[in-house]
Write a protein that binds this DNA or RNA. Structure first.
Length: 583
RNA sequence: GGCCCCGUAGCUCAGCUGGAUAGAGCAGCAGCCUUCUAAGCUGUUGGUCGCAGGUUCGAGUCCUGCCGGGGUCGCCA
């Protein structure tokens, strides 16, 4: 139930009523007509731009058209007043009963309030995290992980058919380096003194247990084998272990993927990469050619040579992209093409990629590949997630990648908790750099948005507990129509109005792929609740629990339950807990 | 040098895909206050939306060109 779309329907009807034989021409422009809350609450409850958008088609001045539409809308029994303002806005003021009904109906919907069908079950793939299986996750992965997970929740709630996917880079040079690093630990586990870890191998001691496990399993038999023999065995074991570590890290953030897709599974003789490239060759999209060197500074090892290229440029990429390396193996990009083909083959229409901002150069080629492979059917959206800067009480946390002393995701979660991490990662637009302060995010203060929002929910529960105590157990049931009708204070109606916005926030956030809008909305709702609460300090008549007036109390408790409902649903979408009390 | 992202109050950021007089929190200023268990509260100052053009009824939002900051730039993943 979205009040704004309901009234959009009524505005459409009013337009249709006065359109006459222009109806067909006007229908084409209807999508630009919106009904939204006005920026300034004094303008009314809802505003529509219909008259300004359609003035040309009607051959009328915006304000004249607005007048005609207003006359129609005034016939609506739910509308208390219609005003025309500015260049031709139509402002609607709704009868109070509409808000009361809205509250009753959202309480009836319960946890389903806000759910939408705009996704129309579109098959949607959200790929996120996809960290190389070479070690535990560090903070750099954290933001994309939370973002992708919350976005997936949001899209599901908005009616998309969502698959959460992780692309495992288990082919290529990196996992060979991993295998060699583990092999060293294996020798160490057998009692050998391996000394310092050589440059170019992974130094982290998280690999020691893997080496130990191999020693337990194989004894010293691997020592006698050549690298060509032991490497695949060690590699497979190492990848499996690292993936288990990563899944464990993700679970600490309450993140679980549906599909872990192996890059290696695409490769090999007659594999998906082979067949995909064959198809592209047949389609004339692959050729042997030379690439112009990059503009500006020429890389030192630049060598002008002929290579196998995919014609991505004609699909919007900056240049064509190589598919085969100089050693005749496939490039990472070739796997990517086959992987994209696989996703499209599985029927996905919406392909969302959550990547770090340093992958910005990858956007155009992904879009081009999807366009080339799906004939423009599959829609790609790459969400770039900016970096997180860590602070400890205002001081930047120093990290050196070379020395391997990066902060792990697990350390952050263990220190401040899952809720703080998740909420803060979402309390900023994805493409803006985010400052994360260990001290601030656990502070119990107004300046800490995690606490501020969770505390608002705890406050609703505290009120309900309190009311149950002072009024007896009879406050849990649904409020009667008479009780609801007692809601009339501007602050109370204002809160309902805010609650009624939730469904359209869900829809717009889902369509824009911007979960942060939910976080900001919740922060506003929390703020409205706290403000209304504070008014009760000066004016006891506005408090939720009115000792000698059970009917008014019942109505107000329904409002409290409505706020609690939306806060908990919103927090659920973000993957953040809604605690009943905070002490 | 090419491409991508960012630039909004002193600071940190929103701005609902083009709407009305651009918002919030912090800081500042001025008051009030000891709680329906809870973060003290209320009011208020503060803006050439980086700059210059353009598109139209209307631009922080879209287009072009500059300025500043970050990222990225054949075969690494």
């Amino acid at each position: 139930m979205n009040l704004f779309s309901i009234f959009l329907g009524r505005v459409h009807a009013a337009i249709h009523d006065i359109a006459g034989d222009r109806a067909d021409a006007i229908a084409l422009h209807l999508s630009r007509v919106v009904v939204e809350p006005p920026r300034d609450a004094s303008h009314g409850d809802m505003a529509t731009n219909a008259a300004m958008v359609l003035a040309k088609e009607f051959g009328a001045k915006p304000r004249d058209l607005a007048e005609a539409l207003a006359a129609k809308l005034r016939e609506d029994p739910d509308v208390a007043a219609v005003e025309i303002a500015g260049p031709g806005f139509i402002n609607l003021r709704l009868r109070e009963a509409v808000w009361i009904d809205a509250l009753a109906s959202m309480l009836g919907a319960g946890p389903e309030f806000g759910r939408s069908q705009i996704g129309q079950n579109r098959a949607t793939n959200v790929e996120y995290v996809s960290a190389n299986p070479t070690g535990p996750m560090h903070v750099g992965h954290c933001r994309g992980a939370v973002f992708g997970d919350a976005l997936a929740n949001l899209l599901q709630f908005a009616g998309y058919d969502v698959t959460r996917e992780y692309y495992v880079n288990d082919a290529g040079a990196q996992v060979d380096v991993l295998a060699r690093s583990v092999y060293l630990r294996y020798r160490e586990a057998l009692g050998e003194d391996i000394g310092a870890i050589p440059e170019g191998l992974y130094p982290g001691d998280y690999l020691s247990p893997v080496g130990k496990a191999l020693a337990d399993l194989y004894g010293d038999t691997l020592l006698k084998k050549s690298e060509a023999e032991w490497l695949p065995m060690v590699r497979a074991a190492a990848i499996e272990e690292m993936l288990a570590v990563i899944k464990d890290d993700l679970a600490a953030l309450d993140i679980r993927h549906d599909v872990f897709f192996s890059e290696a599974s695409l490769q090999g003789q007659g594999g998906a990469v082979d067949t995909t490239l064959d198809q592209l060759r047949k389609a004339g999209l692959v050729y042997e050619g030379r690439l112009p060197p990059p503009k500006g500074q020429l890389p030192e090892d630049w060598e002008d040579r002929e290579q196998t290229l995919f014609k991505t440029e004609q699909f919007g990429d900056d240049t064509d992209r190589p598919l085969v390396k100089s050693d005749c193996s496939y490039t990472y990009f070739a796997s990517d093409v086959a992987y994209m083909k696989d996703k499209i083959g599985r029927g996905f229409e919406e392909l969302i990629f959550v990547l770090g901002a340093d992958h910005g150069g990858y956007v155009k080629r992904l879009e081009a590949v999807a366009a080339a492979l799906s004939g423009g059917k599959a829609h790609v959206d790459v969400k770039l997630v900016q970096l997180v800067r860590l602070f400890r009480a205002g001081e930047p946390v120093k990290m050196s990648k070379r020395a391997g002393d990066f902060v792990t995701l697990r350390e952050v979660v263990d220190e401040v908790g899952r809720d703080a991490v998740r909420f803060m990662m979402l309390f900023r637009k994805n493409d803006a750099v985010l400052d994360f302060d260990f001290a601030k995010v656990v502070e119990q203060s107004r300046e800490n948005p995690v606490f501020y929002v969770q505390y608002a929910y705890a406050r609703t529960q505290s009120v309900l507990r309190n009311a149950a105590e002072s009024l007896g157990g009879d406050v849990g049931g649904p409020a009667s129509a008479d009780a609801l009708a007692r809601l009339s204070d501007a602050g109370e109606i204002g809160l309902i109005r805010k609650l009624a916005e939730f469904p359209r926030i869900v829809e717009s956030a889902a369509q824009a792929h911007e979960p942060h809008r939910i976080a900001f909305y919740l922060h506003e709702l929390a703020s409205d609740l706290h403000h209304h609460w504070n008014r009760g300090n000066d004016n006891p008549g506005l408090r939720f629990v009115v000792a000698d007036d059970p009917q008014a109390t019942n109505g107000r408790l329904a409002l409290v339950r409505g706020v609690a409902l939306v806060l908990s649903t919103g927090l659920r979408l973000l993957g953040v807990a809604a605690p009943a009390e905070m002490r």
